[in-house]
């Protein structure tokens, strides 16, 4: 049984005449695997990630998603997080007035509580954040601010990886974590992600650029087009896409 099993997923925008965005998408992710998803703008990659995280702007009309055999679509948003789903947002939002440390701690403790674990002690928490933040080049000053408030685009992406490192999810979905990163930051973030690769953890890495996949080497590459996976292969598929673009799929679809 795959850890994450997406089977024939159809979804549309919530509402009367909401447009269908996912049109029969299937994907299996086993523990330890890294799957890259590439695909043209508007093909539905972010929509897929939102649906997995539980955003209620979408309505699933057909298909199933299970996490370790449990129906993921039936769970509340925070329940999914506690079960190990983590989405690194394409556009992380600013939460003014909620201190980053308060936010991280509330999140970690809420997840632990839901799993029946003990809350983390203050010294342990501070040590954990300090250690992970240092590795990602996140300053103490940033941690003192509101969540993402006044962060540059690249800093926001790094902060997402910090959250992931602290929350230690089972299945991480990284939505264009590389976009907006300079060359050095891309390295730092990739190292951060690679440090989290483990035989127990699955990852879905959404990206437009083969470059990222030099750093985070995927086990599988999938091409998403018009709401479906239209082709899957190994890491060499990314190189082919880099060279040829998506023209081939556009024609197929037309």
């Amino acid at each position: 049984m795959a850890m994450l099993d997406i089977d024939n997923l159809h979804a549309k925008i919530e509402g009367e005449d909401g447009k269908e965005i996912l049109k029969g998408l299937s994907l299996k992710v086993n523990p330890g695997e890294v799957h890259a998803i590439m695909g043209p703008n508007g093909s539905g990659k972010s929509t897929l990630s939102y649906i997995l995280a539980g955003k209620d702007d979408y309505e699933v009309t057909e298909g199933t998603v299970t996490l370790n055999g449990e129906d993921l679509l039936d769970m509340e948003i925070d329940e999914r997080a506690a079960k190990g789903v983590f989405l690194a947002f394409q556009y992380p939002i600013e939460v003014p007035g909620v201190a980053t440390m308060t936010f991280l701690r509330s999140a970690l403790n809420a997840q632990r509580k839901k799993r029946g674990e003990e809350e983390i002690s203050t010294p342990d928490f501070l040590r954990l954040v300090r250690e992970k933040a240092a590795g990602l080049g996140i300053s103490q000053d940033m941690l003192k601010r509101g969540v993402n408030v006044g962060f540059s685009g690249g800093e926001k992406k790094r902060a997402e990886i910090l959250q992931m490192a602290i929350l230690e999810p089972k299945i991480a979905i990284l939505d264009e974590t590389d976009s907006g990163l300079d060359i050095d930051a891309l390295k730092i973030v990739s190292e951060g992600v690679n440090a989290l690769r483990s035989p127990e953890r699955g990852m879905i890495v959404i990206t437009h650029y083969q470059r990222l996949l030099n750093h985070i080497v995927p086990d599988f590459v999938h091409v998403m087009h018009k709401g479906r996976i239209v082709r899957s292969g190994g890491k060499e598929l990314a190189l082919e896409l880099e060279a040829n673009g998506y023209a081939e799929y556009q024609q197929d679809a037309a």
């Binding site: 995280a53 539980g54 955003k55 509340e76 948003i77 925070d78 999914r80 997080a81 506690a82 989405l87 947002f89 992380p92 939002i93 939460v95 909620v98 936010f103 509330s106 999140a107 970690l108 809420a110 997840q111 839901k114 959250q163 929350l167």
Partner: peptide, 11 residues
């Protein structure tokens, strides 16, 4: 904002 917080596990 609510979604962002809840997606991190906060009820």
């Amino acid at each position: 904002l609510l979604f962002y917080l809840r997606a991190r596990g906060i009820p």
